[in-house]
Design a protein around this nucleic acid. Structure first.
Lengths: 135, 135
DNA sequence: CCTAATTGGTTTAATAATAAATTAGTTTAT
DNA sequence: ATAAACTAATTTATTATTAAACCAATTAGG
């Protein structure tokens, strides 16, 4: 069992990710959101404050500001002051926002699922387990 | 063996990718290149024409134009007319460009390798094999 | 209590990325 | 030959992203 080529593994995975994103982007655009906005919506329940979203999504805070502004203008996200800490903005999905998030994740799952379909159920579970160990 | 949650697998993997990129970006910047420029350099031997790079890297052609211009200005890439098809630009790494590419990939391998180190050699090989099936 | 240091978020100013239109060269079919 | 269709790459004009500087609220230490 020789050492694996790290760069090769990286490249395989990176291409997988960018190609799925490229595939899904036009359909998301129909839904009215950008790819990163979907990722933000998807994390909103778990991380309802801009700073936490920036941290989780590995993006700069000003980017979160911009996305949240747009999503708020589109009435997919609601912003309130957090009474526990008046600096914070407590974000939440509107019901329309939740619908768009669900629909967007379905599109993503469809595109990524087409790739995963090349694996057996056991292999899919194995992949998930390996990725969990990498976190 | 129930069905796996596709979105969960996606999220695990997406975060892995963006966090490795975020980790490597500052070091690459020291080297004088951006992350995507490294990916472009790394594909240059295999795909020496802009259109092929755009296709392989899933990026629009004008982006390739911009990156190649910068890399050429930095003397990391050389551009020639392809005598077999005069519309084409045949790109190649300069010796400095190859050095930078090698150094950049080493930084990437270091960062990604730290994650992979959470897996045994067998698991790493398994991951590689699964990703190959997904291509 | 104050003041300094931190944290949360935004704004501004600048750079990065890209869609749409364009130019240059090639191929195909008369 | 030559017009039409096609392919490679670039340019232009616009939008997206972000670093740096900022303001407001909070917390920690005298």
């Amino acid at each position: 069992m020789g050492k694996i080529d790290i760069t090769k593994v990286w490249t395989l995975n990176y291409r997988l990710v960018v190609s799925v994103i490229g595939e899904v982007a036009p359909a998301l655009h129909e839904l009215g959101i950008e790819v990163k906005e979907l990722f933000l919506l998807a994390e909103l329940d778990a991380h309802p404050h801009p700073a936490a979203l920036a941290e989780t999504l590995c993006m700069p805070k000003p980017s979160v500001t911009v996305y949240v502004k747009r999503l708020e203008a589109a009435e997919l996200v609601k912003r309130e002051i957090d009474n526990a800490d008046l600096r914070r903005h407590k974000l939440s999905l509107t019901s329309e926002g939740r619908k768009v998030m669900t629909g967007g994740l379905a599109l993503l799952a469809e595109a990524f699922g087409q790739r995963l379909a090349h694996l057996t159920a056991t292999q899919q579970a194995e992949l998930k387990s390996l990725l969990e160990k990498l976190s």
